[in-house]
Protein backbone atom coordinates (compact mmCIF):
# COMPACT_ATOMS: atom_id res chain seq x y z
CA UNK A 1 0.00 0.00 0.00
CA UNK A 2 2.85 2.37 -0.65
CA UNK A 3 2.39 5.74 -2.27
CA UNK A 4 2.21 5.48 -6.00
CA UNK A 5 5.60 6.66 -7.22
CA UNK A 6 5.31 5.54 -10.84
CA UNK A 7 4.95 8.19 -13.49
CA UNK A 8 1.33 8.70 -14.38
CA UNK A 9 -0.05 9.45 -17.79
CA UNK A 10 -2.13 12.50 -16.97
CA UNK A 11 -3.23 15.83 -18.36
CA UNK A 12 -3.08 17.32 -14.87
CA UNK A 13 0.45 18.06 -13.69
CA UNK A 14 -0.08 21.31 -11.78
CA UNK A 15 -2.99 23.50 -10.73
CA UNK A 16 -2.49 25.47 -13.92
CA UNK A 17 -3.81 22.47 -15.85
CA UNK A 18 -7.24 22.86 -14.22
CA UNK A 19 -9.73 22.99 -17.12
CA UNK A 20 -11.02 26.47 -17.83
CA UNK A 21 -14.50 25.37 -18.88
CA UNK A 22 -17.22 25.92 -16.28
CA UNK A 23 -20.14 23.53 -16.00
CA UNK A 24 -21.22 24.93 -12.64
CA UNK A 25 -22.43 28.46 -13.20
CA UNK A 26 -22.37 31.34 -10.68
CA UNK A 27 -25.48 32.20 -8.70
CA UNK A 28 -26.22 28.90 -6.97
CA UNK A 29 -28.24 29.13 -3.76
CA UNK A 30 -25.53 27.25 -1.80
CA UNK A 31 -23.86 28.93 1.19
CA UNK A 32 -20.89 31.19 0.69
CA UNK A 33 -17.70 29.16 1.16
CA UNK A 34 -19.27 25.74 0.46
CA UNK A 35 -16.51 23.13 0.19
CA UNK A 36 -18.70 20.58 -1.56
CA UNK A 37 -19.46 23.09 -4.29
CA UNK A 38 -15.73 23.32 -5.12
CA UNK A 39 -15.66 19.50 -5.29
CA UNK A 40 -18.56 19.23 -7.73
CA UNK A 41 -17.21 22.10 -9.80
CA UNK A 42 -13.82 20.38 -10.19
CA UNK A 43 -15.46 16.99 -10.81
CA UNK A 44 -17.56 18.40 -13.66
CA UNK A 45 -14.48 20.07 -15.13
CA UNK A 46 -12.78 16.67 -15.24
CA UNK A 47 -15.82 14.75 -16.51
CA UNK A 48 -16.82 17.25 -19.18
CA UNK A 49 -19.96 18.36 -21.02
CA UNK A 50 -21.42 14.94 -21.78
CA UNK A 51 -22.07 14.22 -18.12
CA UNK A 52 -25.67 13.63 -17.04
CA UNK A 53 -26.11 14.53 -13.38
CA UNK A 54 -28.51 12.67 -11.09
CA UNK A 55 -29.29 14.64 -7.96
CA UNK A 56 -31.28 13.63 -4.88
CA UNK A 57 -32.58 15.62 -1.88
CA UNK A 58 -29.75 17.33 -0.06
CA UNK A 59 -27.98 20.68 -0.32
CA UNK A 60 -27.09 20.10 -3.97
CA UNK A 61 -30.70 19.51 -4.89
CA UNK A 62 -30.65 23.31 -4.76
CA UNK A 63 -28.38 23.39 -7.80
CA UNK A 64 -31.67 23.27 -9.67
CA UNK A 65 -34.08 25.45 -7.74
CA UNK A 66 -36.92 26.78 -9.84
CA UNK A 67 -36.57 28.85 -11.97
CA UNK A 68 -32.78 28.59 -11.95
CA UNK A 69 -30.30 25.82 -12.64
CA UNK A 70 -26.62 26.17 -11.84
CA UNK A 71 -25.45 23.18 -13.86
CA UNK A 72 -24.87 23.36 -17.61
CA UNK A 73 -25.27 19.60 -17.89
CA UNK A 74 -28.54 17.72 -18.09
CA UNK A 75 -29.86 16.92 -14.65
CA UNK A 76 -32.41 14.48 -13.24
CA UNK A 77 -33.78 14.84 -9.74
CA UNK A 78 -34.48 11.46 -8.11
CA UNK A 79 -36.00 10.46 -4.75
CA UNK A 80 -33.64 10.42 -1.76
CA UNK A 81 -32.85 6.70 -1.75
CA UNK A 82 -32.84 6.22 -5.51
CA UNK A 83 -29.89 8.07 -7.06
CA UNK A 84 -28.06 4.97 -8.37
CA UNK A 85 -31.37 3.37 -9.43
CA UNK A 86 -32.14 6.46 -11.51
CA UNK A 87 -28.63 6.27 -12.97
CA UNK A 88 -29.34 2.66 -13.98
CA UNK A 89 -32.46 3.87 -15.78
CA UNK A 90 -30.53 6.51 -17.73
CA UNK A 91 -27.72 4.10 -18.66
CA UNK A 92 -30.24 1.44 -19.76
CA UNK A 93 -32.37 3.95 -21.61
CA UNK A 94 -29.44 5.18 -23.67
CA UNK A 95 -28.24 1.61 -24.33
CA UNK A 96 -31.67 0.53 -25.58
CA UNK A 97 -32.01 3.59 -27.82
CA UNK A 98 -28.59 2.83 -29.30
CA UNK A 99 -29.45 -0.85 -29.79
CA UNK A 100 -32.66 0.15 -31.56
CA UNK A 101 -30.57 2.50 -33.67
CA UNK A 102 -32.80 5.32 -32.49
CA UNK A 103 -29.71 7.30 -31.52
CA UNK A 104 -25.97 7.27 -31.96
CA UNK A 105 -24.07 6.44 -28.78
CA UNK A 106 -23.64 9.89 -27.21
CA UNK A 107 -20.65 8.73 -25.12
CA UNK A 108 -22.32 10.18 -22.05
CA UNK A 109 -21.30 9.68 -18.44
CA UNK A 110 -23.83 9.43 -15.64
CA UNK A 111 -22.85 11.07 -12.35
CA UNK A 112 -24.86 10.52 -9.18
CA UNK A 113 -24.37 13.49 -6.89
CA UNK A 114 -25.49 13.07 -3.29
CA UNK A 115 -24.55 14.17 0.19
CA UNK A 116 -23.48 11.89 3.00
CA UNK A 117 -27.07 11.47 4.15
CA UNK A 118 -28.00 9.69 0.93
CA UNK A 119 -24.64 7.94 0.53
CA UNK A 120 -24.06 6.66 4.07
CA UNK A 121 -27.66 6.22 5.21
CA UNK A 122 -30.71 6.58 3.01
CA UNK A 123 -29.38 5.52 -0.41
CA UNK A 124 -26.89 2.87 0.71
CA UNK A 125 -29.10 0.01 -0.45
CA UNK A 126 -29.60 1.36 -3.99
CA UNK A 127 -25.86 2.04 -4.26
CA UNK A 128 -25.06 -1.48 -3.07
CA UNK A 129 -27.31 -2.89 -5.79
CA UNK A 130 -25.86 -0.69 -8.52
CA UNK A 131 -22.22 -1.52 -7.70
CA UNK A 132 -23.11 -5.19 -7.39
CA UNK A 133 -24.59 -5.13 -10.90
CA UNK A 134 -21.43 -3.42 -12.15
CA UNK A 135 -23.36 -0.38 -13.36
CA UNK A 136 -21.15 1.89 -15.46
CA UNK A 137 -21.59 5.16 -13.59
CA UNK A 138 -19.90 7.74 -11.37
CA UNK A 139 -20.94 8.51 -7.82
CA UNK A 140 -19.73 11.66 -6.06
CA UNK A 141 -20.63 11.91 -2.39
CA UNK A 142 -20.02 15.38 -0.95
CA UNK A 143 -19.47 14.42 2.64
CA UNK A 144 -20.16 17.30 5.01
CA UNK A 145 -20.66 14.86 7.86
CA UNK A 146 -24.34 15.61 8.67
CA UNK A 147 -27.71 16.46 7.11
CA UNK A 148 -26.63 20.01 6.26
CA UNK A 149 -29.62 21.02 4.17
CA UNK A 150 -32.20 20.54 6.91
CA UNK A 151 -30.31 22.14 9.81
CA UNK A 152 -27.29 19.92 10.44
CA UNK A 153 -28.77 16.82 12.01
CA UNK A 154 -26.36 13.97 12.67
CA UNK A 155 -25.81 11.29 10.00
CA UNK A 156 -23.74 8.12 10.13
CA UNK A 157 -20.96 10.19 8.52
CA UNK A 158 -20.78 12.50 11.56
CA UNK A 159 -17.41 12.09 13.30
CA UNK A 160 -16.89 11.43 16.99
CA UNK A 161 -17.24 14.52 19.14
CA UNK A 162 -19.06 16.70 16.61
CA UNK A 163 -22.02 18.62 17.95
CA UNK A 164 -24.98 18.64 15.58
CA UNK A 165 -28.56 19.75 16.11
CA UNK A 166 -29.42 16.18 17.15
CA UNK A 167 -26.24 15.40 19.08
CA UNK A 168 -26.19 18.48 21.27
CA UNK A 169 -23.54 19.12 23.89
CA UNK A 170 -24.99 18.74 27.39
CA UNK A 171 -23.65 18.02 30.87
CA UNK A 172 -23.71 14.31 30.07
CA UNK A 173 -22.91 14.38 26.35
CA UNK A 174 -19.87 15.52 24.39
CA UNK A 175 -21.63 15.65 21.01
CA UNK A 176 -21.72 12.60 18.80
CA UNK A 177 -20.54 9.51 20.69
CA UNK A 178 -20.49 7.21 17.65
CA UNK A 179 -17.73 6.75 15.13
CA UNK A 180 -17.95 7.83 11.52
CA UNK A 181 -19.13 4.97 9.31
CA UNK A 182 -16.39 3.67 7.03
CA UNK A 183 -18.14 4.06 3.67
CA UNK A 184 -14.90 3.55 1.75
CA UNK A 185 -14.60 -0.02 3.08
CA UNK A 186 -18.33 -0.70 2.67
CA UNK A 187 -18.25 0.37 -0.98
CA UNK A 188 -14.92 -1.39 -1.51
CA UNK A 189 -16.40 -4.67 -0.30
CA UNK A 190 -18.65 -4.53 -3.40
CA UNK A 191 -15.60 -4.61 -5.69
CA UNK A 192 -16.21 -1.46 -7.71
CA UNK A 193 -13.73 -0.85 -10.53
CA UNK A 194 -12.66 2.48 -9.05
CA UNK A 195 -13.09 4.08 -5.65
CA UNK A 196 -11.34 7.13 -4.22
CA UNK A 197 -11.44 9.74 -1.51
CA UNK A 198 -10.79 13.31 -2.62
CA UNK A 199 -10.23 16.71 -1.00
CA UNK A 200 -10.46 20.08 -2.74
CA UNK A 201 -7.22 21.32 -1.18
CA UNK A 202 -5.52 18.75 -3.44
CA UNK A 203 -7.17 19.72 -6.74
CA UNK A 204 -4.56 18.04 -8.95
CA UNK A 205 -4.98 14.76 -7.06
CA UNK A 206 -8.73 15.11 -7.45
CA UNK A 207 -8.66 15.88 -11.19
CA UNK A 208 -6.29 12.96 -11.80
CA UNK A 209 -8.59 10.56 -9.97
CA UNK A 210 -11.55 11.54 -12.14
CA UNK A 211 -9.35 11.31 -15.20
CA UNK A 212 -8.19 7.83 -14.23
CA UNK A 213 -11.73 6.67 -13.48
CA UNK A 214 -13.02 7.95 -16.81
CA UNK A 215 -10.71 5.53 -18.60
CA UNK A 216 -12.39 2.61 -16.84
CA UNK A 217 -15.84 1.06 -17.10
CA UNK A 218 -17.99 -0.09 -14.21
CA UNK A 219 -18.79 1.71 -10.95
CA UNK A 220 -16.53 4.66 -10.18
CA UNK A 221 -17.08 6.08 -6.74
CA UNK A 222 -15.77 9.21 -4.99
CA UNK A 223 -16.10 10.49 -1.46
CA UNK A 224 -15.26 14.20 -1.28
CA UNK A 225 -14.35 15.87 1.98
CA UNK A 226 -16.71 18.86 2.07
CA UNK A 227 -16.21 21.66 4.56
CA UNK A 228 -19.59 23.10 5.58
CA UNK A 229 -19.12 26.56 7.14
CA UNK A 230 -22.75 26.79 8.21
CA UNK A 231 -22.98 23.40 9.92
CA UNK A 232 -19.40 23.15 11.12
CA UNK A 233 -19.60 26.75 12.32
CA UNK A 234 -16.33 27.62 10.65
CA UNK A 235 -15.33 30.76 8.78
CA UNK A 236 -16.34 30.58 5.08
CA UNK A 237 -12.96 32.07 4.14
CA UNK A 238 -11.16 29.13 5.81
CA UNK A 239 -12.87 26.36 3.84
CA UNK A 240 -9.82 25.32 1.81
CA UNK A 241 -7.51 25.86 4.79
CA UNK A 242 -9.62 23.51 6.94
CA UNK A 243 -9.73 21.00 4.10
CA UNK A 244 -5.92 21.11 3.94
CA UNK A 245 -5.67 20.65 7.73
CA UNK A 246 -7.91 17.55 7.53
CA UNK A 247 -5.52 16.06 4.97
CA UNK A 248 -2.31 17.06 6.78
CA UNK A 249 -3.44 15.92 10.25
CA UNK A 250 -4.42 12.57 8.76
CA UNK A 251 -8.13 12.93 9.55
CA UNK A 252 -9.01 12.58 5.85
CA UNK A 253 -6.76 10.06 4.07
CA UNK A 254 -6.43 10.48 0.30
CA UNK A 255 -6.55 7.08 -1.31
CA UNK A 256 -7.88 5.11 -4.23
CA UNK A 257 -8.85 1.52 -4.85
CA UNK A 258 -8.34 0.21 -8.37
CA UNK A 259 -10.01 -3.16 -8.81
CA UNK A 260 -9.65 -3.73 -5.07
CA UNK A 261 -6.02 -2.65 -4.69
CA UNK A 262 -5.73 0.31 -2.33
CA UNK A 263 -3.09 3.00 -2.76
CA UNK A 264 -2.64 6.17 -0.72
CA UNK A 265 -2.16 9.01 -3.17
CA UNK A 266 -0.82 11.41 -0.55
CA UNK A 267 0.96 10.55 2.70
CA UNK A 268 0.97 13.29 5.35
CA UNK A 269 4.45 12.69 6.77
CA UNK A 270 4.38 15.13 9.68
CA UNK A 271 0.79 14.76 10.81
CA UNK A 272 0.32 17.68 13.24
CA UNK A 273 -2.07 17.02 16.17
CA UNK A 274 -5.76 16.76 15.25
CA UNK A 275 -6.45 19.74 17.52
CA UNK A 276 -5.09 21.97 14.77
CA UNK A 277 -7.94 20.78 12.56
CA UNK A 278 -10.67 20.53 15.21
CA UNK A 279 -10.08 24.04 16.59
CA UNK A 280 -11.07 25.63 13.29
CA UNK A 281 -14.68 24.52 13.77
CA UNK A 282 -17.07 25.50 16.51
CA UNK A 283 -18.85 22.13 16.21
CA UNK A 284 -15.87 20.84 18.22
CA UNK A 285 -15.41 23.83 20.54
CA UNK A 286 -16.72 21.96 23.61
CA UNK A 287 -13.69 19.65 23.40
CA UNK A 288 -11.40 22.52 24.36
CA UNK A 289 -11.05 24.88 27.28
CA UNK A 290 -11.48 24.39 31.02
CA UNK A 291 -14.40 21.96 30.83
CA UNK A 292 -13.22 20.35 27.57
CA UNK A 293 -13.12 16.64 27.02
CA UNK A 294 -9.54 15.39 27.04
CA UNK A 295 -10.89 11.87 26.69
CA UNK A 296 -12.75 12.54 23.42
CA UNK A 297 -9.77 14.43 21.99
CA UNK A 298 -7.47 11.52 22.77
CA UNK A 299 -9.96 9.10 21.22
CA UNK A 300 -10.01 11.10 17.97
CA UNK A 301 -6.20 11.30 17.87
CA UNK A 302 -5.89 7.60 18.70
CA UNK A 303 -8.23 6.62 15.85
CA UNK A 304 -6.18 8.69 13.38
CA UNK A 305 -2.86 7.27 14.66
CA UNK A 306 -4.24 3.75 14.57
CA UNK A 307 -5.39 4.22 10.96
CA UNK A 308 -1.99 5.36 9.72
CA UNK A 309 -0.23 2.62 11.67
CA UNK A 310 -2.55 0.01 10.17
CA UNK A 311 -1.73 0.85 6.57
CA UNK A 312 2.00 0.32 7.22
CA UNK A 313 3.45 2.98 4.96
Amino acid sequence: MASNQTTIDTAYKTMKDTPREEYLQPGSPLCAGCGGEIAVRLALKALGPKTIVVSVPGCFGLLALYPYSSIENSMLFAPFASGPAAAQGIVDGIRIQVEKRAMVDPGSKVLVLTGDGAAYDIGLQATSGAIHRGLDFYYLCYDNEAYGNTGFQFSSATPTGSSTSTTAVTDSSQGNSLRKKNLFEIWKAHNPSYLATVAVSKPVDMLRKFEKASKMSGSKLFIAFSVCPTGWRSEPRETVKIDRLAVETGVWPLKESVNGRVTHTYIPRKRPPVENYLKTQRRFEHLFGACGSEHTLQEIQRDVDEYWRSISI
Binding site: Y23, S28, S69, N73
Partner: peptide, 16 residues
Protein backbone atom coordinates in the same frame (compact mmCIF):
# COMPACT_ATOMS: atom_id res chain seq x y z
CA UNK B 1 -36.28 23.60 -15.56
CA UNK B 2 -35.67 23.72 -19.28
CA UNK B 3 -32.84 26.25 -19.27
CA UNK B 4 -29.57 24.89 -17.91
CA UNK B 5 -26.90 26.93 -16.21
CA UNK B 6 -29.07 30.07 -15.99
CA UNK B 7 -28.44 30.76 -12.29
CA UNK B 8 -26.25 33.72 -13.26
CA UNK B 9 -29.54 35.61 -13.27
CA UNK B 10 -29.75 34.98 -9.53
CA UNK B 11 -27.78 37.93 -8.19
CA UNK B 12 -26.09 36.27 -5.25
CA UNK B 13 -23.62 39.17 -5.23
CA UNK B 14 -26.20 40.87 -3.03
CA UNK B 15 -25.37 38.38 -0.26
CA UNK B 16 -21.88 39.78 0.08
Amino acid sequence: IIATGNSRLNETGLWR
